[in-house]
Structure formats: structure tokens, C-alpha cells
């Protein structure tokens, strides 16, 4: 029930190659791809969870062969077609038709304020906080989206069915499993949960090492 993006802990990847702080963009089209994605996001037709899910829904073959910003462009093109902002004919090369929803176009003078405003993910919730720092918890054994088969979720496979302890409470945040599918914010308590490396890996590097994940309350059950 996994998708190609859920790669934490995977074997077989090579070296991580450090690089200097500049240049930020290695080619013009990387910069253009980032800017196009942000500008289209400002049209308000989708949220960050929807856009993540669009990239994750690329075929495993495309996900693996595309470079980072190629994934962004493919996800963006799919979203533009899905939402009707751009037609399949236009993507195929037919003359573009003026959009009826261009009143939301991001103009240069609004860029600074849009970037500075951001999009906070905390929301009020009726769901009571069930855990406190120090509590022992177990993550769901099956990490699939429970609302939509094959849908978006933020519980990585490597941390499914693992025993950890609550490290901190972050407040109540939008649930991506719902938000990614336009099913509403469904905010619920969010926690940082610490897992001993030996709980996650057959051959942990060091007995004291830990991995911490931010996990929603519905991903967790109390541990005895």
C-alpha cells in the first residue's frame, strides 16, 4: 500500500553529495519551475496537501526517473488539468484560451506579502488532546489513508506499527489525509513522537539514536 515517495529507510541509494550554499538554483528552469508552482498555488484552487498528493500520484516509474523539479512540473500540470485551469488541449499545444479566473493572478507587487503571509496549518479542533509528553504510544500498523483508498497520508511506512513516546504537543493541525482530498481541514492534535532507532531498524547504528516524527493523534494508539 506504499507509494514511491515513501522512501525513508530504503536500501540501495548511493552517496549524499554536499554542495555549497550558492548558487541556490543550478539552472534557470529550476528557478522557473519553483516560481510557477508558487504562482499557480496563489490562484487558490488547491492547498499544499493536494499539491503534495499530486506529486506522489506520479507513476512510480516517473517518480523515480524525474529530477526534483521535474516532479514539481508534472504534479503542477496534472493539477492544472484536474482543476480545469488549463485544458488537455492547451497542454497538447492548442492555442490557449483566456481564463475566466484571472482576477486571482499573482502580480509582482503582491509577491512579497503572499510569501510573508504563508499558510499556517493550525486550526481549532473539537478533538480532545489524548496524550501528554512522556506517554507511550504505538503507531497504526497499516499506514494507509483511512478516508480515501490510496490517498495521501503522512505516516511513513518505516514508522508504521512502531512503539514510541510523546515528546511534545504541537497544538491542533489540519489533517493532511482529509485536506489532500478536499474533504475539509479535520484538524486534530499533532505531536512530535520519538522512536528508538532499534524500534525501526533491524541494525540500528547506535543504541542511543532516535528518530522523531510529527504525527497526528489518529495515527496513534496508547501503548500498554
Amino acid at each position: 500500500m506504499s507509494r514511491a515517495h515513501d522512501m525513508g529507510g530504503r536500501f540501495g541509494d548511493g552517496a549524499v553529495t554536499p554542495e555549497p550554499e550558492t548558487p541556490v538554483f543550478h539552472t534557470d528552469w529550476h528557478a522557473r519551475a519553483l516560481a510557477l508552482t508558487l504562482a499557480c498555488g496563489a490562484l487558490g484552487k488547491w492547498n499544499i496537501d493536494v499539491s503534495r498528493h499530486a506529486r506522489e500520484s506520479l507513476s512510480p516509474t516517473d517518480y523515480a526517473r524525474f529530477s526534483y523539479y521535474e516532479k514539481w512540473m508534472a504534479g503542477l500540470a496534472d493539477l492544472l488539468a484536474d482543476t480545469g485551469l488549463v485544458s488537455r488541449e492547451e497542454l497538447s499545444g492548442q492555442a490557449p484560451v483566456q481564463s475566466g479566473t484571472n482576477d486571482r493572478m499573482l502580480t509582482a507587487d503582491r509577491v512579497a506579502s503572499v510569501l510573508a503571509t504563508g499558510g499556517p496549518a493550525d486550526r481549532p479542533s473539537d478533538i480532545a488532546q489524548q496524550f501528554a509528553p512522556g506517554d507511550a504510544v504505538i503507531t497504526r500498523r497499516l499506514n494507509g489513508n483511512r478516508l480515501v483508498n490510496g490517498g495521501h497520508t503522512r505516516l511513513p511506512g518505516y514508522a508504521a506499527g512502531a512503539r514510541g513516546r510523546i515528546l511534545r504537543f504541537h497544538g491542533t493541525h489540519i489533517l493532511p489525509d482529509s485536506s489532500a482530498h478536499h474533504l475539509g481541514d479535520a484538524a486534530e492534535p499533532l505531536y512530535a513522537v520519538a522512536f528508538p532507532a532499534a524500534e525501526l531498524w533491524t541494525h540500528p547504528e547506535h543504541p542511543g539514536d532516535e528518530v522523531v516524527l510529527d504525527l497526528w493523534q489518529s495515527y496513534l494508539e496508547p501503548a500498554a
Binding site: 519553483l34 492544472l80 484560451v97 481564463s99 499573482l106 509582482a108 509577491v111
Partner: peptide
């Protein structure tokens, strides 16, 4: 495509790139 449809302003893209560069 997006510029000709009136959905993206190339000057806004330049501004985003300059901000993060």
C-alpha cells in the same frame, strides 16, 4: 500557456526567484 491565459504574471515569477536567490 499560463501567461497567455492570464493566470501567471512573468514579472511575479521574476520577483519570486529574486526573493529566494
Amino acid at each position: 500557456i499560463l501567461t497567455r491565459k492570464g493566470l501567471v504574471d512573468p514579472a511575479a515569477l521574476d520577483e519570486i526567484i529574486d526573493t529566494y536567490a
